[in-house]
């Protein structure tokens, strides 16, 4: 497992309590799992994603990732409609481990309320939470 110092948590992403990330890209928000989540889960072997068109509230379960160690729910960092899913994860779920912020993205969301982005952690905020929680 990585130490907190080893985690890659880019500045231009926002982070949720359960270590989903959200990144504003034009009028949509791209969502994935952060480096901490993928590192804790270990090698991911299966990903369940929602249908395009599904609508979720912030905090709803939108999918599931399965690693050798565990099966984990993924929660919406912001509410909205799913407008795209990363179908490459079907055949290559390990992309989440290999490239959590790029090739391993999970869904694109058309946010219902863009202000929900402001409820998420910045890089500094999530780092502080990790240190306080003694999650490492």
């Amino acid at each position: 497992m990585k130490s907190i110092e080893e985690l890659d948590l880019p500045e231009d992403y926002r982070y949720a309590d359960d270590h989903e990330w959200a990144k504003l890209d034009g009028d949509k928000v791209r969502v994935g799992l952060d480096d901490y989540a993928q590192d804790q889960l270990g090698e991911i072997v299966y990903v369940e994603l929602p249908q395009v068109g599904a609508v979720f509230q912030k905090g709803d379960v939108f999918g599931m990732v399965e690693s050798v160690k565990a099966v984990s729910d993924c929660y919406m960092p912001v509410g909205g409609e799913v407008v795209a899913v990363n179908s490459a994860l079907e055949d290559s779920p390990q992309l989440i481990n290999q490239s959590p912020y790029d090739d391993g993205w999970m869904i694109d969301v058309k946010p219902a309320d863009i202000a929900e982005m402001d409820t998420l952690y910045t890089r500094e905020g999530i780092l502080e939470k990790l240190k306080e929680g003694g999650e490492q």
Partner: peptide
């Protein structure tokens, strides 16, 4: 170790 850097698969 649960796994080494190569990963369990």
């Amino acid at each position: 170790p649960l796994w080494y850097p190569a990963g369990p698969k």
